[in-house]
């Protein structure tokens, strides 16, 4: 049993069968990549996992509990954090505040009416945020407006915010899309470091084959809404069906 079990999930948008019959099992503490050509249903699958979409058929179990019908914040509280394609951070807030919000969410749950005590009196939250900022090399930017940071730093902050909640599963949606090669490599190194430091399962949806083959332990190839094949990176590279369906279009990427 994997930490995430997707069984027979189907989703139809009008005439388009976005997800056919998806079965997927992500093993605990693995790095699992989901790849596929445009329109393969990667994003739809991700949105099902985080509660943004409810599938027409099938089940999604996280650690033995169904996630279907739960709101995104409830699924997050179960231990699934999501990193978006374009970094989603609190742009109007300082970097330090950005870092404190997930700490509060972890400690106080989905809603806490704490309107009287000052933030500055919450020393444990400040310390925890500071620890994350130092760890992620963002400490010198703590008073900066988050929106004023570079794209790479925003990505780093977003990942840091997700990690501050100690998630069991980290979902990354094309984390290096639109990044320069240097930033992409930094992100790969960061994710490798995270994997070494903590017990965490990482599921990554990615176009960039360099990222996928640098990180993934298992790869699932989606095509036209159904998993074509699932295997180790080495096997995927040479798999004839994959070459035909996906890599065939871009030989250089492999």
């Amino acid at each position: 049993m994997g930490i995430l079990e997707v069984k027979n999930v189907g989703k139809r948008f009008g005439g388009l069968q976005a997800l056919g019959n998806v079965n997927l099992s992500i093993a605990e503490n693995s790095v699992h990549a989901i790849i596929g050509p445009n329109g393969a249903g990667k994003s739809t699958l991700l949105n099902v996992l985080v509660g943004k979409l409810i599938p027409d058929t099938g089940s999604v179990m996280f650690d033995g509990q169904s996630v279907l019908g739960r709101k995104p914040y409830e699924i997050n509280q179960m231990g699934i954090s999501r990193v978006f394609q374009t970094p989603e951070i609190f742009g109007d807030l300082s970097v330090q505040e950005n870092m404190m919000i997930p700490c509060f969410a972890k400690r106080d749950g989905a809603f806490a009416m704490n309107g009287y005590g000052s933030i500055t009196s919450q020393q444990d939250m400040i310390d925890k945020a500071e620890e994350m900022l130092v760890n992620m090399k963002l400490a010198d930017k703590r008073h900066m407006h988050a929106a004023a940071m570079s794209r790479g730093d925003k990505r780093r902050l977003e990942i840091a915010m997700c990690l501050a909640q100690d998630p069991r599963l980290l979902l990354l949606d094309e984390p290096t899309a639109g990044m320069a090669r240097a930033d992409t490599n930094n992100t790969i190194d960061l994710l490798k470091q995270i994997k070494e430091e903590r017990d965490i399962t990482i599921a990554i949806i990615e176009h960039d084959m360099h990222v996928v083959f640098s990180l993934a332990e298992r790869i699932t190839v989606l095509a036209q809404g159904t998993p074509l094949v699932e295997d180790t990176p080495d096997k995927i590279k040479g798999h004839p069906k994959v070459r035909e369906a996906y890599l065939g279009e871009s030989q250089d990427a492999a």
């Binding site: 919000i101 509060f104 933030i119």
Partner: peptide, 20 residues
């Protein structure tokens, strides 16, 4: 207060808030 910070978070990015 923390409530005030959360309210500013609502204004800044509700999506990130819900996924946090």
């Amino acid at each position: 207060s923390p409530l005030g910070m959360m309210l500013r978070a609502v204004k800044s990015n509700q999506q990130r808030m819900n996924y946090t």
